[in-house]
Every structure is written in structure tokens, then in C-alpha cells.
Design a protein around this nucleic acid. Structure first.
Length: 878
DNA sequence: CACCTAGTACTTTTT
DNA sequence: GTACTAGGTG
């Protein structure tokens, strides 16, 4: 999380003139010029010193755009004498903003703190927090995420007795509402334009949704932008203040801005026109979120005096990688013609592997990583360069693909960090705790109240909630409705008929807890407030009685408490506000740690803006990547292609592309992706080219060469041309495929040694032929618990484990307990531990929190868990 | 009212 | 393989 900056505050909003610019001595000036401009090429330099008026920087992948923005800001401050707080930089993620601030800090020191930086969402949120009242917004509005939104819609569906599936699926309705909002349509306009039955239905929901959010004092993500824009349009005094304050505007990833964001920027820049946007039309991958690629394509039309600076020298990748990326993206139409170049001629060929299935694919990736990291230990003389795990990333199209890869990594003991997936702030217990905090700030936030009412279970069920809701809804007596918090207090006093005694007592208890916690807010720190929430809400006791799952959740709550400590310098009420706000706006990517000695697992979308020496892209089959939803649509297909371009250009030195001939449930038919066919063949090193269909097996995709030839002839595949889920019995893969699957497949998973596969084929593999082909494949997997080497560091030899696997979970040796020293970690990386339920595991890492130690453990059968040492009954094994 | 089970439907990407 | 739902039981 990016620590406090106040977009409006220090220095105060009241307009101040820029500090009087004392004329710089010539020598001083020359020194600044040298320091800021010397590291730049000609084009970058031009972008940095062009400070007045509109500027479009067309920055190809890896061409140093972040560097241009930071140097430009440094230039503005040091050379042009602009005050830091007169500069605004909008980035795509909070992480990017934090990084930019760090880099700027290195260049110019303390002044970096005062530059306004953040995402569109976070900047708007803070402006609205401060000035929202000017357009009638409540001071303490809540920010609703996808989960909260779904709850609102589900409430409607319940009222109407409609199913939450099919055409009234909440996410579908919300998607339609969001699109309309981003197109600037009001619910009324939606209704007017609705033609189909479904459009009318969505329009009605949109109207209801808007009314309801207003009543709940809540804004969703779209509202933050819309209201942010409205603030600039409808509150002239406020708008004028911001326009005067922010004299120099920067927008990164401009190709991914939507219409609302575009208008917001235009409003801010209206007066001075000092607007620098940086982007690359080839990297536009968010049209589904309303991003409008025309914003960048038409910039010169919108700002006729704009200067345009193309950055075409790439500093990141080898020529081979750039040629591959260009090979793919040049199949798109309507792009700004450009071709990146690099001084790094040549480079390793791009490896391509056609795997049997997703497990085989993951295993292949793991082997390549092991090979490369063996080079660190100096085991491989021919290794090109040592590789650290920090420098390796595995990219994929959908989050679901991470599972197979995670399992393979876990098995081989390679540490990894997963970006995305189930996010910390979306976990149930974390959201529950945050709901408690939100409730403390607001009487209206019904969604949050309903979240906490029965967590832990207090005998408040659907019926009670219905009564509460009815009491809260507008009536003739109270046309605006009654705030939910008041209703709860009233119900606790027995003023609402029909509520059971049990529920009534529970509600009185909740009202009482809320009252007590509210009294305490101003007097205690945020972590202490959370302690109060945990104990008085009963959350803590509840989790303690929930066994192992409870431990894990409790660990998350401790983590949340730890995070809340970052706001400790602020006044308690502000700290609460900021904490609740920022936890609502954190992005996945914000969790990425670029220094951790771990392999990174990440979606292609989230990988934008990042880079690694070694990159794997997995799942390159038709239907998965390009995704099936793009197969019929030219525009969407082009976006998939840009996504592929983004993926390829993340790699600095080595790139591997892989696909699986057979995938599970419907995500692709196993035909190698057309993107593979679009890369010039001489750049590729095809490790495996089997074509099961040549043997008449239609359960698999075509082989690489056959597919390539097919694409060259203009053939196309549609989803389903393979036959995933074909009737069993037809399954007759070539024996080498079968053997590979056996070596890597189900039988080796998660410590259980032998599971007959789903097809019932359970004959002995033809080991001889198999071993002859690649002897290492049978090695540890399937013979020893695969997780045996966990936590021992990469490149270390796997320890021999004599224990038969059947005995896993039973202690063999018991050693005297290790002394517990306060303030020091008790568990060490690599410790073998025993847990009453999860069985045996290896400590991956642990860290101290204020009152406890959180231990991350890889268990044989249950995966990786983080447990609180004080609660979990963990035994260290000898 | 809470918990369990079995059955069903569904899978993009995210601030 | 999972996430969610409905329906039954305690």
C-alpha cells in the first residue's frame, strides 16, 4: 500500500504561487542538466524537456517510459522550478505509483513526497473524500467492490424472486450496468434505449441499483470516476482550485484510459494544457473495462498543438524476442505503425513445448527452471548466465491455470509468489473485519451491517434480516428510509415487531458493541481498535473454536492488524478513514514483490508493466489463448493478440511458450495457438512436436507443425473442434504420451503416490522406452514425497527420504522442544513440522507479528497454509 | 436457524 | 475442479 499522500493537502489547497524561482547559476544548471538528461537517449530527452503544452509519448514496450516520466518530473522541479505539489502523475496501479515515487526519491529526495501520484480511482476517492460535499456526496461514503455490488443485486433478485443464474446472473447485470455507466448513460437513458427484454430488465436494475447505492452512502469503482468527473464539472470553485493547483499532468498507460477518465483529464488540463500522456496502442488490453483505444489514437486530433515523441529503442529484450512480438502484433490492423529495435542483437531462440496435458506442461516448466537455477550452483558449465528465481515469471491467460503450475512448483520445492487469484482483501474473514470498521463509520452501509449481523452465528437469519430491511425501507412516515444502524439499535430495544427474542438479544448485543467501539475510536490506535473488533465481535472466539480453518483465518486477521499499523502516525479517525479506503482500492499487482527470491505466477493482464529475464507463457492453445470468447470477434481477437504482444515483451532474455494438447473442461481444444504460427519459424526451437491426431486420436489437438501449416492455409479452428470431454473408452494416446503423463501426472500429486487415472487406464508404463528417451523424468517424482525438498533451497540435492509414504503424518522421531525466545522466530525455514489435522509439512517461512508468529507451511496433502503459532498445535520434528 | 449433503452450472482479463 | 444452490435434518 502506498503510504499517505494527500492530493489536496500539504501544502494546503489554497492557491499558492510557485516558489519564486531564483535564477540558477550557470554551473548549477549545467549540473542538473547533466544529471537528469545524460542517462537518456535523444527521444527520451526530447520528451523530458518538452514541458509546456500537450505531449504524446508513444512508448513501445521496454522503451523506458517510466524513466521518462520520472526524469520529466525531476526536470520540472529542479530545472524549471515547478513546485512538487503542482505536479500530478496518474498511474495504472498503486504499485506503479509507489515505484515511481521511489525512483523519484532517489533522484530528488524529499520533494518526491509532495508530488501527487496514484491511480485514477485513488485520486478521485481522495478528492471526493475532501470535496464531495460540494456535489452532495456524504462525507463518509463507503467504497463497494465487486463482492458488495453482487450482494446489492442479489438483494433485488431475492425481492423479485428471481434466480441468480442465467440472464439475471449478478455479475452479468453488473457488467452491463458498468458498461452503460462508462458510456455516460444514466439509468433513464438506458431505459429509453432498451430494445430487448433483457436490456429493459438491466435498465430497471440499473435504476434500482443507483437508488440503493445512494441510500447506502456507497460508491462503486465506476462511481469514483464518474463522481470525480462530476466534481470537476459541477463544482466550479472546487474544480478551479484543482486546475490551479495541478499545473503539470502526467498520465501513464494512456491507451487503457476510458472515456470518463479521458474527460476527467481534459477538465483538469483545460486551463493550462500541460498534459503529458504516455502509452502504446499495441499494449491496449483493457477494452472490456471500458478502455477506449481511440483516446491514444486520436490524441493529436483532440490536442492539435500536441508534440509527439515516439520511443522506439527497446532496452529490455533481445532482437529475437522483439521479432517474435512484432511477428504476432503485426497481424493486427489499424495500429500505429512502428517497430522496436534493440542493440541486443540475436539472443536465445524461443523454446516451444507441446505438452500432453496441463500437468505435463507445468512439469516441463519446472524442469526448465531447475535447469536454469542449477546454473546458479555452477553445476552446468554450459549455462548461459546464472539465473535467480527472482528473474523468472510464469504467465497465463486465466487465473485457473495457476493451479497445475503451483502444484508442480510445490512438488519440486521451488518457492513462488502468486499474484491475483483469491485476494487477501477479498477473503471472507478479512472482509468481515473490514465490514466492522465500515459499520463504525456509517449508519447507512446496509451491506456491511448485514455482513456482520450473523458472523459469528448469533441466531440472526433470513427472516430477521427481512424484518430489519423492511423497517429500514422508505415509508410514508420516513420517505428517505431509516438508516440501517438505527434500525438495528431499535430492534435491540424491542421496537420492531416480529423479531424473535433470541434475535432481539443478539441485535441489542451488536448495537452495544458498536456503541462501545465507537466511543473508543478516537482514543486508541487502529491496531488496538481492531483488537477490540476481534474480541468484542466474537470473531476471535469463533475462529478459535473453528479448528484448523479458523487458525488460518485468524492468521489473516493478524495480518490485517499488522497492515493497519502503517497508519499509526495519523489521527485515529483519519487512520480509520484511510485504512478503509485504501483496503478497498488495492490491486493485485500491488502485492508483487520484485525482490523476493521466488518465481512469479501472474496473469498476462497483471504482468503489464513488469519484466523478467526469463519468462514462460503457458496455455497457448486455441480457445484458451486466444480465449474462446474472442474466437468469433475480430476486435476481441486483436486485443488477445495485443495481450500476447504484452506477454512476449515482458521477457528480457529467455522466453518459453508452451501448450497442452489436452485440457480439462472446455478451455480450449488443444490446437496450438495461432499466435505460435505467427512467430517466424526461425526464431523458434520446438522441443516437442507430437501430433496425436496423426495416430487418429481426436481427443487431442493437432500437432504444432500441422496446426501451423493449417493456419498458413487460412484454416481456422473453433472451440470444440477437438473433443474435450469425449466419451471415455476412446482414449488411446500414443504410448510415449501415456508414459509422460504417468511420470508427472495424477499419481505424483500431493504426496499420495498412486491414483488410478480417471480413464481407468492403469497399466504399467513402458519404462524402458521411456527411460531411453529421457531418464531423468522418473527420478524423484512418485518415489519419494515430492515435497521432501521443500524449503531447502533450489539446487540443493533432494534429501533421501526412507520413510514409506504411507507413514506420512505420523512422527518418527521426537526431539526435545526447542526453547522459545520472545521476540525471535521459533520456526526456521525448512523445519519439518507435524500438525494434528494437516499432517506433516515443511516450513516455507515464518514471520513475527506484534503478538504472534505466522508460519507458512507446505503440507503433504493440504497445500500451503499460513498458521498462527500461538493457536496451531505445531510440533517440530527432528 | 445452522449445518450437511448432493446436485448443478460454470469458468477472462481488474481498478 | 469448484462454487454455488436447494433441500433435508438436527
Amino acid at each position: 500500500m502506498n503510504l499517505p499522500f494527500d492530493p489536496t493537502g500539504e501544502p494546503p489547497l489554497a492557491h499558492r504561487a510557485a516558489p519564486a524561482r531564483s535564477p540558477l547559476a550557470a554551473a548549477e544548471r549545467a549540473a542538473i542538466e547533466e544529471r537528469i538528461l545524460a542517462p537518456l537517449n535523444d527521444a527520451q530527452r526530447r520528451a523530458v524537456i518538452t514541458t509546456a503544452g500537450p505531449l504524446l509519448v508513444l512508448a513501445g514496450a521496454g522503451s523506458g517510459k517510466t524513466r521518462v516520466i520520472t526524469h520529466r518530473i525531476a526536470w520540472l522541479i529542479e530545472h524549471e522550478g515547478v513546485a512538487p505539489w503542482q505536479i500530478l502523475a496518474v498511474t495504472f496501479t498503486n504499485k506503479a505509483a509507489a515505484e515511481m515515487r521511489d525512483r523519484l526519491y532517489e533522484m530528488i529526495g524529499e520533494a518526491a513526497r509532495d508530488v501527487a501520484m496514484g491511480t485514477f480511482h485513488s485520486i478521485c476517492a481522495r478528492m471526493l473524500r475532501r470535496d464531495g460535499e460540494a456535489i452532495g456526496l456524504p462525507k463518509g461514503f463507503a467504497i463497494y467492490d465487486a463482492d458488495d455490488q453482487v450482494r446489492v443485486i442479489k438483494g433485488f433478485l431475492k425481492e423479485d424472486d428471481l434466480p441468480a443464474t442465467g440472464e439475471t446472473k449478478p455479475s452479468l447485470i453488473l457488467g452491463a450496468i458498468s458498461r452503460a455507466k462508462n458510456d455516460g448513460l444514466s439509468p433513464e437513458q438506458m431505459e429509453d434505449r432498451a430494445v430487448t427484454h433483457h436490456e429493459r430488465l438491466v435498465a430497471r436494475f440499473a435504476r434500482r441499483y443507483a437508488t440503493e447505492l445512494k441510500r447506502l452512502d456507497a460508491l462503486d469503482f465506476d462511481d469514483l470516476l464518474l463522481e470525480g468527473l462530476r466534481l470537476l464539472q459541477d463544482a466550479p470553485t472546487v474544480a478551479e482550485r484543482y486546475r490551479t493547483k495541478w499545473q503539470y499532468l502526467h498520465v501513464d498507460e494512456y491507451q487503457d484510459t476510458n472515456r470518463i477518465q479521458y474527460n476527467w483529464v481534459r477538465e483538469l488540463a483545460a486551463k493550462h494544457g500541460n498534459l503529458c500522456v504516455v502509452g502504446d496502442d499495441d499494449q491496449s488490453i483493457y477494452s472490456w473495462r471500458g478502455a477506449d483505444i481511440r483516446n491514444i489514437l486520436d490524441f493529436e486530433r483532440d490536442w492539435p498543438t500536441a508534440e509527439v515523441v515516439p520511443l522506439e529503442q527497446n532496452y529490455r529484450s533481445t532482437q529475437t524476442i522483439l521479432d517474435a512480438a512484432h511477428g504476432v502484433v503485426s497481424h493486427n490492423h489499424g495500429r500505429k505503425q512502428k517497430k522496436l529495435w534493440t542493440e541486443l542483437q540475436g539472443g536465445d531462440q524461443i523454446r516451444v513445448y507441446g505438452a500432453f496435458d496441463a500437468e505435463d506442461e507445468a512439469a516441463w516448466i519446472v524442469r526448465r527452471i531447475e535447469e536454469a537455477s542449477a546454473a546458479i550452483a555452477g553445476r552446468r558449465a554450459d549455462a548461459p548466465e546464472p539465473v535467480s528465481l527472482t528473474g523468472i515469471a510464469i504467465l497465463y491467460r486465466t487465473n485457473a491455470q495457476s493451479r497445475a503450475i503451483e502444484e508442480a512448483l510445490l512438488r519440486s520445492g521451488i518457492p513462488y509468489q502468486l499474484i491475483g487469484g483469491t485476494k487477501f482483501y477479498q477473503r471472507r474473514e478479512v472482509k468481515d473485519a473490514l465490514a466492522w470498521l465500515r459499520v463504525l463509520r456509517s449508519d447507512s452501509d446496509r451491506i456491511s451491517y448485514e455482513r456482520i449481523l450473523n458472523v459469528p452465528p448469533r441466531g440472526i437469519g433470513e427472516k430477521t434480516i427481512e424484518l430489519l430491511r423492511a423497517a429500514s425501507d422508505p415509508t410514508t412516515k420516513s420517505p428517505d428510509g431509516v438508516p440501517y444502524g438505527h434500525v438495528i439499535a431499535a430492534a435491540g430495544r424491542g421496537e420492531i415487531a416480529g423479531i424473535s427474542t433470541r434475535a432481539r438479544n443478539a441485535l441489542a448485543g451488536i448495537a452495544d458493541v458498536i456503541r462501545r467501539l465507537r466511543d473508543r475510536i478516537a482514543a486508541v490506535t487502529l491496531p488496538e481498535l481492531l483488537d477490540g473488533v476481534y474480541s468484542e465481535s466474537g470473531l476471535r472466539a469463533h475462529l478459535a473454536s473453528e479448528g484448523v480453518e479458523g487458525e488460518e483465518r485468524w492468521a489473516n486477521l493478524l495480518e490485517l492488524r499488522g497492515i493497519s499499523g502503517r497508519f499509526i502516525e495519523l489521527a485515529p479517525l483519519d487512520a480509520l478513514d484511510r485504512f478503509v479506503e485504501e483496503t478497498a482500492l488495492v490491486a493485485d499487482q500491488d502485492a508483487f514483490d520484485g525482490d523476493a527470491e521466488r518465481v512469479t505466477l501472474i496473469t498476462l493482464h497483471a504482468a503489464k508493466g513488469l519484466e523478467w529475464p526469463t519468462v514462460f507463457i503457458a496455455g497457448l492453445t486455441e480457445g484458451l489463448f486466444p480465449h474462446s470468447r474472442a474466437l468469433m470477434d475480430q476486435e476481441q481477437m486483436e486485443e488477445e493478440r495485443r495481450l500476447c504482444y504484452v506477454g512476449i515483451t515482458r521477457a528480457k532474455r529467455r522466453l518459453s511458450l508452451s501448450y497442452a494438447l489436452r485440457r480439462g473442461w472446455g478451455d480450449g481444444d488443444g490446437t496450438p495457438s495461432r499466435f505460435l504460427a505467427e512467430i517466424p519459424e526461425e526464431l523458434l526451437d520446438v522441443a516437442n512436436d507430437e501430433d496425436p491426431r496423426a495416430d487418429g486420436d481426436t481427443r487431442f489437438g493437432r500437432g504444432f507443425r500441422s496446426a501451423r501449416a493449417g493456419f498458413a492455409r487460412g484454416e481456422s479452428w473453433r472451440e470444440g473442434s477437438g473433443t474435450p470431454g469425449a466419451p471415455s473408452g476412446a482414449f488411446r494416446p500414443g504410448r510415449d504420451l501415456e508414459a509422460r503423463r504417468r511420470a508427472y501426472g495424477a499419481g505424483a500429486r500431493s504426496g499420495s503416490l498412486h491414483v488410478p487415472d480417471a480413464d481407468g487406464i492403469d497399466e504399467a508404463p513402458d519404462d524402458d522406452e521411456f527411460l531411453g528417451e529421457s531418464p531423468e523424468l522418473l527420478q524423484p517424482v512418485g518415489r519419494v514425497p515430492p515435497w521432501a525438498a521443500l524449503g531447502r533451497g533450489v539446487g540443493a540435492s533432494s534429501p533421501t527420504v526412507e520413510t514409506p509414504v504411507e507413514s506420512v503424518g505420523r512422527p518418527r522421531v521426537t526431539t526435545p522442544p526447542r526453547p522459545r525466545i520472545p521476540g525471535e522466530r521459533y520456526f526456521r525455514d525448512g523445519d519439518r513440522v507435524l500438525h494434528p489435522t494437516f499432517g506433516e509439512g515443511i516450513v516455507v517461512t515464518s514471520k513475527l507479528t506484534r503478538h504472534d508468529e505466522e508460519v507458512t507451511i507446505a503440507f503433504a496433502g493440504s497445500g500451503v497454509k499460513t498458521l498462527a503459532a500461538s493457536i496451531a498445535k505445531l510440533e517440530v520434528q527432528g
